[in-house]
Amino acid sequence: MKPAPFEHHAPLTVEQAVSVLSEVGHEGKVLAGGQSLIPILNMRLASPAHLVDINRVAGLDSVEVTPEAVRVGALVRHAGLERSEEAFAALPLLRQALVNVAHPAIRNRGTTVGSIAHADAAGEMPAILALTDGVVEVAGPSGSREIEWPDFFLGALETSLAAEELAVAVRFGRFPVGTGTAFTEAARRHGDYAMAGVGVAVTVTDGVVSAARASFVSVTDVPSVLDLGPALGGVEPGTAAWDEAVEDAAEAVREHVDPEGDIHASADYRRMLVTELTRRVLPQAADRAGATA
């Protein structure tokens, strides 16, 4: 449980970081919070020859709220974003999801951008990036670019980030007025990777649902968004029709997800679970939509 030898790089600027990454190419790995990377190194599941430690890079540690988005720098720890009142006011979904990310000790160190770049389908924040129609801001040797979330996540633990590129921030999109969000997940133990999780955003206009979407944790191989408009659109929350619509939405989720079984739960169980979680979480989001409308 000791890592193989590696060279540690500690750039002070984004430019230096990108330059080192360009030099070392596929032999390099970015170290931010290290909450996934360090265990992988210790178990020698990966042995990168170079670690590019970005913790000393200036200018990556801020949370900025704009009318369109909440922008989170690459060194913002989960705990920092979770506790940001400004971010919570602009996008309550962030805190709703972040309290489910492992335990406080891990959130104190782990970064939100890092968990997105890690692209684990069992991670909460990739799903939240998808649900908010988010964007990843990337710095590379030939300048900056932005990657929309559907183009960012390619597969399990696989993104479109090139070896010489650094994700410097992500932007979580804000929802229109009248939107309520909610997130829930079920794990074997408090703070474990979820067996299944679901986040939803429900927009209510003039008393009826005008938009609704969901994204998922641990039941799809890459983050994906399911449009629940067909099931919930035009329905007034709290009515008998709403209950039926929620059933339809849950059914749509059941068909949409594609979980895999493991030692903790079968695929069928996870499918049942995410369906039930959807039933439970939609009324919460609708209530909150009503409260903000």
Binding site: P39, M43, R188, R189, H190, G191, D192, Y193, I263, H264
Partner: peptide, 16 residues
């Protein structure tokens, strides 16, 4: 042994 780590061998936390 498929769960030879504290990630997959589930000892109860204080919360359990």
């Amino acid at each position: 042994l498929l769960n030879a780590s504290f990630m997959d061998f589930l000892m109860p936390y204080a919360s359990e």
